[in-house]
Design a protein around this nucleic acid. Structure first.
Length: 494
RNA sequence: GGCGACAUGGCCGAGUGGCUAGGCAGAGGUCUGCAAAACCUCGUACGGCGGUUCGAAUCCGCCUGUCGCCUCCA
């Protein structure tokens, strides 16, 4: 198999992936700030990194995937202005900040579970790692990268020559920016806070060598990534909008503290747009996942299944913007249903062939599995191009459906089916074979269905339309659709 | 103002210097007890203007437009 190439934001090029340690991959992705429901933008990001994790596992790597939960409020800017988001939300909902964090953490995972996003191996909370953050700040102060000013601690960006390397900015540019606040006690306007002094009214506060306060925006990720993945990590991911300042500051903190390169490969996913505009919490145009699943939003005419959302996202590349519209979702839905039905037919045929008494069934010309497999691997190895992979699945599997329906079965149908379970199920996460609902996993659902289909086929042969239609109608009531074709009948779940 | 992306057929959306991406929608056809599907065939697109090249949607330049970051944000 050829090498895995991924686009490294640091070099702005596709690079061949080489793990720090043979056979292992450490991945850190910036997680959500839990003061509100997750929306479609979160889904794009975490589905993207879910694919990365799944594909590495598929390739045989041992993956440790760390994704933080930010449960301490960040201010709206780097000066002492703005409001702590957690505090603000807790005031609105009349709950403790930790209740807010708990509530939205729960809802975040609930929605990600629905999207079939695998849970991270470690989901560290910022508030659970205050000592680690403080000790990192102390180290930065000791090494001359940070300084204290009246209970605040700031990172001195001039102490690190290559500050700005990720986002391609220079300090001159930062200073020229009109939005950088100059009125604080920072030495340089571009310096950023590591620790902030808490005033009397601030609820979330911790004791520190610099007095009561709370950590700055960026230090949690540096501290937790280091703790669980080491001083140099393989892959760090996040939304494009975090490239600057968040990720730039993470680099500064880690490289300042450890004198070692922080991240080998930076991956950034692009935005979801709505009418060409970025979808964002603070822009007020975000549609939450819950709203998609229930259809309760002015821009939605109905509800949309999580699988459709996932498929829709995978149909575009993670580094491209994905423009949302119901029309686009609808075409994704139809395409998704069609693809799944092809996969189902393949799986059913393979399954039926397994205990075929005659043993003479799979005799057809073998399917070119090698071509499909190589093609899909090439797509994924090319910076996780799921859009192309899905195109390939349609292209190569669609003709097979006609073959199967005409009663011909390729000799290697079982092998194909098994591969698809892995690729479409384990890697893309868009299909589970024979999903007959909860609790039915260990029941021979396919086999039972086969009996019903056989009975109905006999009835049809005898022109007993009453029985044939009754079977079809009653199954339809249960959400099982029978479709008659020239090569026999198949079923699918509606 | 600084930095950086992107502009593809009705819609969504990949992509490479020369060979059909794919999906959805649309048109025609096949099959069929009925129904519902399904299956087959069909589109020759790449913002504008120059340039490089035997050949560019793909490389370079300019222009136009859209968007992102520079403030919390996936």
């Amino acid at each position: 198999m050829q090498e895995l190439q991924l686009f490294n934001t640091l070099s702005r090029k596709k690079e061949t992936f080489e793990p720090l340690k043979e056979g292992f991959v450490g991945i850190y992705a910036c997680g959500p700030t839990v003061y509100g429901d997750p929306h479609l933008g979160h889904a794009k990001s975490y589905v993207s990194f879910d694919i990365v994790v799944r594909y590495f596992r598929y390739l045989g790597y041992r993956v440790r995937y760390v994704q933080n939960i930010t449960d301490v409020g960040h201010l709206t800017d780097d000066a002492d202005e703005g409001e702590d988001k957690m505090a603000k939300q807790s005031r609105i909902e009349r709950l403790e900040p930790m209740e807010i964090a708990e509530k939205y953490t729960y809802r975040y995972f609930r929605d990600m579970d629905r999207l079939n996003v695998l849970r991270p191996d470690i989901s560290p909370r910022a508030t659970g790692h205050i000592p680690e953050q403080i000790s990192m700040i102390k180290k930065l102060v000791e090494k001359g990268h940070a300084y204290e000013a009246d209970g605040n601690v700031y990172f001195d960006v001039t102490s690190l020559p290559d500050y700005g390397k990720l986002s391609g900015r220079t300090l001159d540019e930062a200073e020229a920016g009109a939005r950088v606040d100059v009125s604080s006690d920072k030495r340089n306007p571009a310096d950023f806070a590591l620790w902030k002094k808490a005033d009397e009214s601030h609820i979330m506060r911790w004791d520190s060598p610099w007095g009561d306060g709370f950590p700055g925006w960026h230090i949690e990720c540096s501290a937790m990534a280091t703790k669980y993945l080491g001083e140099t990590i393989d892959i760090h991911g996040g939304g494009l909008e975090n490239q600057f300042p968040h990720h730039e500051c993470e680099i500064a903190q880690c490289e300042g503290a450890h004198d070692a390169p922080f991240v080998r490969y930076w991956m950034h996913n692009n935005m979801i747009t709505l009418n060409g505009q970025k979808m964002g919490k603070s822009l007020g145009n975000a549609i939450t996942l819950e709203q998609f699943f229930t259809g309760s939003h002015d821009l939605l005419s109905r509800s949309w299944a999580p699988g459709v959302i996932r498929f829709f996202l995978l149909q575009s590349h993670y580094r491209s913007t994905t423009d949302f519209s119901e029309k686009a979702l609808e075409s994704a839905e139809t395409g998704y249903i069609n693809l799944v039905s092809i996969l189902d037919v393949i799986h059913q045929t393979a399954d039926a062939g397994k205990d075929d008494e005659s043993g003479s069934n799979p005799a057809g010309k073998p399917f070119d599995l090698q071509k499909l497999r190589d093609g899909l691997h090439a797509c994924m190895n090319d910076d996780f191009n799921t859009a192309r992979a899905i195109g390939l699945l349609f292209e190569q599997l669609r003709p097979l459906k006609a073959v199967l329906q005409s009663g011909n079965t390729p000799a290697n149908i079982s092998e194909l089916s098994e591969f698809l379970v892995h690729f479409c199920g384990d890697v893309l996460g868009i299909w589970q074979p024979g999903t007959a609902g909860d609790g039915a996993d260990d029941l021979p659902f396919d086999e039972v269905m086969q009996i019903l289909l056989d009975l109905r086929q006999t009835a049809r042969k005898n022109k007993d339309w009453g029985t044939a239609d009754r079977i079809r109608d009653r199954l339809a009531e249960l959400g099982i659709i029978i479709e008659d074709g020239p090569g026999g009948s198949t079923y699918k779940l509606s």
